[in-house]
């Protein structure tokens, strides 16, 4: 549909650029808009479009109801996110009022052109997928989504049909599936092998590494983008490491906090397209985005990060 393309002018230009020598340039439009380009952009395998590799989750952190003060503080987080060059925001109908909070922020910041909107279908009823995605778009106050995912594989067969049709019509640009906490990896693998999806979303961090066994290599092989949820185990990792001093060697990859070291670990897996930490804090969103700059750990360094964090956690 036309609206999709008018809303996402920046993305469209990036897609065009992806096919030309321009694709070598980092985020030309964000430069043109005077915003901070992220050094670490990733390419969405199915399209060649560039997307910043640190996004923003909204589970719990953005479920703030009608509280004006909290709505504004979430919008401040979003402002810092866009200012720092971030784009992908992930939400779901399951997340209480989070979708509305994102919509409030996009409205207040007039940032519809800057967001890469990732939402989900979350209903057992196969016929409800389309109406639910329309309701979600209304809450986001946008015309349609960049990415729609089947949340936790709920009724995925029925929803996948709907999503394929929506993609053909142009009402959504990318489609995918999600899981978390290491659940249902077998089923996810089957879907990756049989369905034409653009993205998978799963849990991956220095202590939750099951995805490395099969799903991440398969994603690379099949050209499927990977979104990483629960990078900090919903804050349990960062909280438990807070009392331990950051090893000096973290400086070798320009990490100045545990959160950055964790994100560097995640982003250094070549299959990963985007990690989506959630936060209620402007300083944390800046810190997380900064992890997408500077050098990334190599294989031995990754093992060192993982071993150290496992031993302290």
């Amino acid at each position: 549909m036309d609206h999709q393309w008018s809303i996402h002018r920046r993305r469209l230009l990036q897609m065009l650029a992806a096919g030309t020598a321009l694709s070598a340039l980092p985020l030309p439009l964000s430069l043109a808009q005077g915003r901070q380009p992220l050094a670490l952009e990733r390419t969405i395998p199915s399209s060649g479009e560039a997307v910043p590799s640190v996004g923003l989750g909204t589970w719990i952190t953005f479920n703030v109801g009608d509280n004006q003060r909290l709505l504004d503080s979430c919008a401040d987080v979003m402002a810092a996110f866009f200012d720092g060059g971030g784009a992908m925001i992930d939400s779901s109908p399951m997340y209480g009022s989070s979708q509305n909070t994102v919509g409030y922020g996009l409205d207040r910041l007039n940032a519809r052109d800057e967001v890469f909107s990732a939402d989900k279908i979350w209903t057992r009823d196969g016929d409800e997928g389309r109406p639910q995605s329309r309701e979600s778009a209304d809450l986001w106050r946008i015309e349609g989504f960049d990415l729609l995912q089947v949340h936790n594989l709920v009724s995925w067969q029925a929803h996948m049909k709907t999503l394929r049709a929506m993609k053909e019509e142009g009402t959504v640009r990318y489609i995918g599936i999600t899981t978390s906490h290491g659940r249902r990896h077998d089923e996810m693998e089957r879907i990756m092998r049989s369905e034409p999806i653009d993205f998978i979303q799963l849990t991956y961090n220095p202590v939750d590494r099951e995805a490395e066994d099969r799903l991440l290599p398969l994603a690379r092989e099949k050209g499927i983008g990977v979104i990483v949820n629960r990078p900090f185990r919903r804050g349990a990792l960062t909280e438990s490491l807070a009392g331990d001093p950051l090893p000096e060697w973290a400086g070798e990859v320009d990490a100045s906090s545990w959160a950055q070291l964790i994100l560097k670990f995640i982003l250094s897996n070549p299959a990963v397209t985007c990690a989506i930490p959630a936060t209620t804090r402007v300083d944390h969103v800046r810190e997380n985005l900064a992890a997408a700059t500077g050098p990334l750990p190599d294989h031995d360094f990754r093992e060192r990060i993982s071993d150290t964090i496992r031993s302290l956690y």
Binding site: I60, N63, N67, H181, G182, R183, D208, R234
Partner: peptide, 22 residues
């Protein structure tokens, strides 16, 4: 399956203590 054990009671709630008490 190790990741499944990373669930905390708060993970079952949709909202944070901060938001609830506000």
């Amino acid at each position: 399956m190790e990741t499944l054990f990373s669930y905390r009671p708060g993970d079952l709630l949709l909202f944070s203590p901060r938001v609830y008490w506000q």
